[in-house]
Design a protein around this nucleic acid. Structure first.
Lengths: 333, 333
DNA sequence: TTGAAAGCGATACCAT
DNA sequence: ATGGTATCGCTTTCAA
């Protein structure tokens, strides 16, 4: 007994060939605009293909012509303009190379990150992005796929990476605060991981360099609201604080708003310095002073590094692998 | 004469099999954690694979197990927070389905758009996103790949789409302005395409509905700076204008800034209404009033629509295909 | 100009 | 538990 409503089987090149009364090589020629084919035949084949709704399998095609490259781009939170910028730059750089970019947003969650790593290995030729998991675990999960780590705290041993060095920038920022008379400088770190961030370490080092003792630290979710709450709590506990350095600009903007709401004049009563150097910082009031990172460069370099991995050219030299942060003074400090 | 420095040939499953002294099926089993394999054998195979640096071909694998789905997501400008939001939502929706998303940023350029369409057809199972080219051209370029058009002005005949209906929202916005006493309401449209945007049409209709004659229109690049310039020019030529509706929030923010700089009090002397309803609008001062669109919903629906195309379920019903804009009143109007 | 046959690199089914 | 063989859908020689 025959089943009616047949399975929607894939239309293959052979179907088209049969329909057009030619061999499949001829179909291939017609579809790929190779020469060596009669005009009439070509048209007939094209028509058949159209009529049958034929679409070549990307797998079969990829299998035989080993030319398409795609990379995976892993971003912790695409909604954060900083990562958007990195992603946009990476997309640009990939496009100039004719690469495809498969984007994954791990929502800042280690679990999602693991899931992504598991699945990504079999989908792309190289992986570029932000990861919080230990190196050996990443290594195990991607199973040999080349990886470029961006902004990894400890320059990775077994992976290529693009290193972010904010120590100097943060040091400048603290210098700037100090010369404006601030002595009691707090920090709002991010709340994501168990340990303090590397940015926190830079902050402490910078304070020490200026002979200041560590200020109070609060942790915040990476959102404006998170920054607002953290600043309120920080000032409630430590009213003597007159300046804060924050993990990033989003948090800083929250701090800015909360500070104003509490009646502090900015930057006189409360100076705020963010990190990232978002364009957005220029739009709020007062405009945000920030330790700025060149996100565009980060994205571009990451893809270039991947290219070198893939072509077995040597990696970038350590210097050009590093992106340094610079103090961008606006109004909030 | 043999060439030294042999071509870096791909390591295949057969190489691993040979190295481990087993058949390739056994290798396959070991790698895919299927049962029916001895522990010792499995370990030996895994070691060989590791040693040879073996990575399965995603094409060969995809060819035989027809399970991985990927879609192309085409965005005009990832740096615009609105599209970022759409993209983030689409990524989320795709992830729950286990799909991969290949992202393309067309930089708002018709040329890039064409290039993207040409290349995308052979890379993904469906395409979702924003396009400015005529339908029939899109059709020709993607060659049969299912397409979901987002926010297309004329609901597409031959493609599925997610429709944006802002008429009501804009009408409300104009009503809001009118009841605040504004009679001379200008618009800043975008400068991208030759013709006025659909948002401009909504604006005109809304004015008419309130018995107002069309106000002056200026076009701006989609950036804060573009908005600033356009507003300056608009007011220079038409000082009697007391309110402007803008193509989007980014432009609106520019208008806001320029208006203030010109000494206009906002919203009394100059009311500004944007379009998109970006979160960002709440951070500027005064906070931006805007005709808001649910970007998250847009991204989610687009992917759902793609899912229906792919599974040959019926498309979404027309009503749920439509996303309506709503007036979000903050401070600028 | 067209067609036949040989892979590309993996998995699945059926033996053993 | 392991191996042989067919197969996935296409492109690329090589003949005709």
């Amino acid at each position: 007994m025959t089943q009616s409503g047949a399975q929607a089987r894939r239309v293959t090149i052979d179907d088209v060939a049969r329909h057009a009364g030619v061999s499949r090589q001829t179909v291939s020629r017609a579809l790929n605009d190779k020469g060596e084919i009669g005009d009439a035949t070509k048209q007939r084949v094209l028509d058949s293909a159209q009529e049958l709704g034929y679409r070549p399998s990307r797998f079969a095609r990829g299998l035989v012509r080993q030319d398409t490259t795609s990379i995976g781009l892993v971003i912790p939170d695409l909604r954060n303009p900083f990562f958007t910028e990195v992603a946009a730059a990476a997309l640009e750089a990939a496009r100039t190379r004719g690469w495809h970019v498969v984007v994954y947003d791990t929502a800042d969650s280690p679990d999602e990150e693991r899931g992504t790593l598991e699945v990504i290995g079999s989908q792309v030729d190289a992986v570029v992005g932000y990861f919080s998991r230990p190196e050996d675990e990443i290594d195990r999960l991607v199973r040999g796929v080349p990886v470029v780590l961006i902004g990894r705290e400890a320059p990775a041993a077994r992976f290529s990476s693009i290193v972010v060095d904010g120590s100097e920038g943060v040091e400048r920022a603290v210098g700037h605060l100090v010369s404006a008379g601030h002595r009691r400088i707090g920090m709002i770190d991010h709340a994501g991981r168990a340990e303090p961030s590397i940015r926190h370490a830079w902050y402490e080092t910078a304070l020490a360099a200026h002979g200041l003792e560590p200020g109070p630290v609060r942790r915040a979710a990476q959102s404006v609201a998170g920054g607002e709450r953290a600043l309120e709590e920080l000032l409630a506990e430590h009213p003597d604080v007159t300046a804060v350095f924050t993990f990033n600009d989003i948090i800083a903007i929250g701090a800015l708003r909360a500070g104003r709401r509490l009646g502090r004049r900015i930057p006189q009563d409360l100076a705020v310095v963010g990190f990232d150097g978002l364009q957005l910082g220029a739009l709020v009031e007062p405009a945000l002073t920030s330790v700025a990172l060149d996100a565009h460069r980060l994205g571009t370099l990451a893809v270039e590094q991947a290219a070198r991995l893939l072509t077995a050219t040597g990696p970038l030299d350590p210097e050009s692998e590093t992106v340094r942060a610079e103090l961008c003074v606006r109004e909030s400090a």
